[in-house]
Design a protein around this nucleic acid. Structure first.
Length: 542
RNA sequence: GCGCCCGUAGCUCAAUCGGAUAGAGCAACAGCCUUCUAAGCUGUAGGUUAGUGGUUCGAUUCCACUCGGGCGUACCA
């Protein structure tokens, strides 16, 4: 529909040159009585042409040449909107491409040939994933799906660090639990990892090695065993949510391959760094940020900025056209430094999109559950999947704009999981599947021969909804917003449920029944594709 | 103090890069199953979009300030 309007406007712009001055867009009015699509061109032009918008709208309208079999009616309304009403038969044509290629309907080719990297989760292996990581994981994976749908070749990547202070504390936490298990009285420091999983790992070491590790250092087998066990857990949890990373990038490899030193030298050569108080500072103030920051501590150890910059350089060298980083809001102060550093080294930082999601507040029985990996009082992502299922977890994290703080009421999620919107969508899918099974006995085939019969209000609303899918996928991908798909699917499912209630298939006259069946089959395809993007299953039965 | 994010119906959230009468779900109330799945549908009720000013044909959206909440503001990641 939009494409057709864009065409006729384009032709009209040969006659009305001023149409070229603005970006012509078509909106779907909120109110049905304002047409199927609407243009605000006249309002936008009013100022520069110094004419009343309704007058301009008349001019535009009279120079538009269109097919009466496609556009049924036009009007000028309100302050100067031009509203277009399409013919029912044109609207019904949408199901032809859906039926021809159900699995790929909604995909587009705009970004064909481009490579994208989505880096997400990236939790260091110090403990199980929490609910907070869940949002990051689900949104990251879904954005990767979306990019794939609009043509990108996408790599999913997980960046981690298995060295440094936190990992040493992890190893030492295991070591102390190990000593405890063997009957030694040792103080367990408060800032160590308190979780039960630490003891579990220590227990495995006891059963594998007995008391042979009493003299081992924390950085040795204790740390290694912990890392290995925890990573197995993390990957397992992600897999339950259908998430598989292609690349696991170890920060340590940057040191081993000399990348850190390379970047450090480059900064020095470009006179972007200096020494002060026996630390190395990056001239970030000069690069437009607030203040200079340390990149190598007085101890000789780099701060996170240096490896992060080196890491992104490897992504540039791997020829990605788009690099997405997904972080929680606790990282919101760190990325400007990294981007500035990249820019200073002549990398195109506009290819890096940093998506910051706000925190998830968990409430249980009306009380806020505080999350901390160190302390034991967190809710793991695994437990959440146990409670409400992978589909609900994925849908729930996807259904909200990442810039919004979100509240996760565990009590509610458990108790009311049957009333979750995800079931509403899945139910629509299951209902259609059921019909399709049932019509086998009725000798009905989906058919596009009599689409002109689909004139009922419920049919037309459903058809128009189907029209929007491809554009909705494109917008969601370009805005990196997964919740749009959820909103769309809920509207689509609602349109279907209404159609289902008022427009029967079995029992209707054959031509009508087969046209409706074609509509139902198309709807199922779109729901399924939408759910696939979200990573939610589409059951045949419920 | 400063930076980023948020404040919309009782609750959880939408609102098409500034559009027309701000919409859903849950909760509440009133209806609809001898016919394709009632996990559904129909209807009612619910709002000074935190507040004040500004920008303009038009503001939930943009700007300024105020109030309230979250996250940061490291030679931790």
């Amino acid at each position: 529909m939009k494409n057709y309007l864009a065409e006729i406007f384009n032709e009209a712009s040969n006659k009305l040159a001023y149409l070229k001055n603005i970006k012509i867009t078509f909106d779907i009015p909120k109110n049905e009585s304002q047409g199927d699509l609407s243009s605000n061109a006249a309002l936008l032009l009013s100022k520069q042409l110094k004419k009343p918008p309704r007058k301009i709208a008349e001019e535009i309208l009279s120079s538009l040449v269109f097919d009466k079999d496609i556009i049924k009616n036009t009007e000028i309304a309100g302050p100067g909107f031009i509203n277009f009403y399409f013919t029912p038969i044109f609207i019904a044509q949408i199901i032809k491409p859906i039926l021809t290629n159900p699995r790929s309907y909604g995909k587009s080719v705009k970004y064909n040939g481009k490579k994208a990297n989505v880096e997400f989760v990236s939790a260091n292996p110090t403990g199980p994933l929490t609910v907070g990581h869940g949002r990051n994981a689900v949104v990251g994976d879904t954005i990767a799906n979306l990019l794939g749908w609009v043509g990108y070749e996408v790599d999913r990547e997980y960046y981690f660090n298995n060295a440094g202070r936190q990992m040493r504390i992890l190893g030492d936490s295991v070591r102390i639990r190990y000593l405890e298990l063997l009957g030694n009285k040792v103080d367990f420091p408060e800032d160590y990892y308190q979780g039960e999983y630490i003891t579990e790992i220590a227990r495995k070491l006891v059963s594998d090695y007995g008391d042979k590790l009493l003299e081992e250092k924390p950085e040795g087998i204790f740390k290694d065993k912990a890392e290995q066990e925890i990573f197995v857990e993390i990957k397992n949890t992600l897999q339950r949510l259908g998430i598989i990373h292609k690349i696991f990038f170890n920060e340590n490899s940057l040191y081993e391959e000399g990348k850190i030193v390379e970047v450090l030298d480059e900064f020095k050569n470009k006179d972007l760094s200096y020494e002060k108080d026996s630390a190395v500072w990056l001239k970030l103030a000069q690069l437009g940020n607030d203040q200079d920051k340390v990149i190598v501590k007085a101890t000789g150890e780099p701060t996170y900025r240096l490896p992060d910059i080196a890491y992104h350089i490897t992504k540039f060298k791997r020829n990605y056209d788009l690099m997405i980083d997904i972080f929680g809001s606790d990282h919101n102060a760190t990325y400007p430094d990294v981007l500035a550093g990249l820019k200073a080294l002549s990398y195109d930082d506009s290819k890096v999109k940093v998506l910051i999601h706000q925190f998830v507040t968990i409430t249980e029985n009306g009380e806020i559950v505080k999350m901390s990996t160190r302390k034991a009082n967190y809710v793991t992502l695994d437990q959440l999947v146990d409670d409400v299922g992978a589909d609900v977890v994925r849908y729930f994290f996807n259904m909200r704009n990442i810039s919004s703080h979100m509240n996760f009421d565990l009590t509610l999620a458990r108790k009311q999981s049957e009333e979750n919107p995800v079931f509403y969508l899945q139910y629509a899918h299951a209902r259609i599947s059921s019909i399709i099974k049932m019509v086998e006995n009725e000798k009905l085939q989906p058919s596009t021969d009599n689409l002109n019969l689909l004139t009922a209000n419920e049919e037309q609303l459903l058809l128009k909804k189907l029209h929007q899918f491809e554009n909705e996928v494109l917008l969601s991908a370009e805005f990196y917003e997964t919740h749009r798909i959820c909103v769309y699917l809920e509207e689509l499912a609602a349109a279907f449920h209404k159609f289902y209630t008022f427009c029967r298939i079995i029992g209707s006259e054959k031509n009508l029944a087969e046209a409706r069946l074609a509509l139902a089959v198309s709807t199922r395809a779109v729901i399924k594709n939408g759910l696939m993007i979200l990573g939610v299953s589409a059951p045949e039965k419920m």
